[in-house]
């Protein structure tokens, strides 16, 4: 019987679940295999999204809920997951997930649906510093959604579209509302959609580079979160930061993977080991 743990990342836009098969050596978790994962839109009902995502992941792995030994919830909606044994913030989880995939990572840029974060990790995968930008939708997945709609293209196409850009223009406003009107004004002046798309990506890169600068750039740098799926943002960021980004195959599930890895550390082959931390209550 495999030892299964789950990470549930309830984000503002998407909910992600990762099921991990944990192998033990001398009583310590030593190998971790992703059995399955799933991504669902969070929508208005966070709890349902979490349940659906977990059900889908279990289905894919051919497992039952009772097979899951320990569950950690993370993300913006981490508190509403009743079946989680423990909650851990997404910052710790992204750090853990990225460190697992990229042992030499020291800086993580995580851009999700509603906020962006820069995380510095130490050599053990612990968070040593972080900056979180949540003042508005600027520079996040939501920003890109609005811009894609203004350009009349699919969100998934925005990245590759920007590669066709021939004219260097600038979207200067980082306020989503003002930037949208800037985009419309460029289009009305006859600029190509690809130029505007490139300008949008550069605007995000400028903002994120400012955050990275505040923490200090320490190589290597990984990018996680849904926006890492946009190759246009990735390229703009690489140029702005002067470095090549480490990109996970599935950047969106990094938080859930980290949560599952932390869950693996909470159990022993024969029971739940002494939990570290937790709240006072």
């Amino acid at each position: 019987m495999p030892t299964i743990v789950a990470g549930v990342d309830v984000g503002s836009v998407a909910t992600k679940v990762v099921l991990l098969d944990v192998g033990f050596e001398k009583g310590c978790a030593s190998s971790f295999n992703i059995k399955s994962f799933s991504v669902k839109q969070s929508g208005a009902a966070f709890l349902k999204a979490a349940e659906d995502a977990l059900a889908e992941a279990l289905d894919l792995a051919g497992l039952m809920f009772k097979d899951v030994r320990y569950t950690i919830s993370t993300g913006y909606g981490r508190q509403i997951v009743p079946f989680a044994d423990k909650q851990v913030t997404e910052i710790s989880c992204h750090a853990r997930g990225a460190k697992h995939l990229f042992p030499d990572v020291h800086t993580i840029i995580d851009i999700g649906g509603q906020d962006s974060k820069t995380i510095r990790v130490d050599s053990q995968g612990g968070v040593s510093n972080f900056i979180m930008n949540d003042k508005c939708a600027a520079g996040t997945g939501r920003f890109l959604e609005v811009m894609a709609r203004a350009l009349g293209v699919k969100l998934q196409e925005l990245g590759t579209l920007s590669f066709q850009s021939k004219n260097d223009i600038e979207v200067s406003s980082m306020c989503t509302v003002f930037a949208e009107s800037e985009v419309i004004s460029y289009l009305s002046k006859g600029f190509d959609k690809s130029d505007v798309a490139a300008a949008i990506h550069n605007a995000i890169a400028r903002r994120v580079a400012g955050m990275v600068g505040q923490l200090g750039l320490v190589e290597r740098v990984a990018m996680t979160g849904g926006v890492a799926k946009n190759p246009g943002v990735v390229r703009s960021l690489e140029m702005k930061l002067g470095t090549t980004l480490l990109l996970p195959e599935e950047p969106q599930i990094m938080g859930a993977l980290g949560a599952a890895l932390i869950a693996a550390g909470q159990i022993s082959p024969d029971g739940i080991s002494s939990a570290v931390g937790g709240s006072k209550a």
Binding site: Y76, Q87, T89, S92, V127, S128, F130, G277
Partner: peptide
Amino acid sequence: GPLRTRIETFIETIRGK
């Protein structure tokens, strides 16, 4: 929400250390 995330992460960081 974000305030909670920041503070929880910070406490997690101290415990981790």
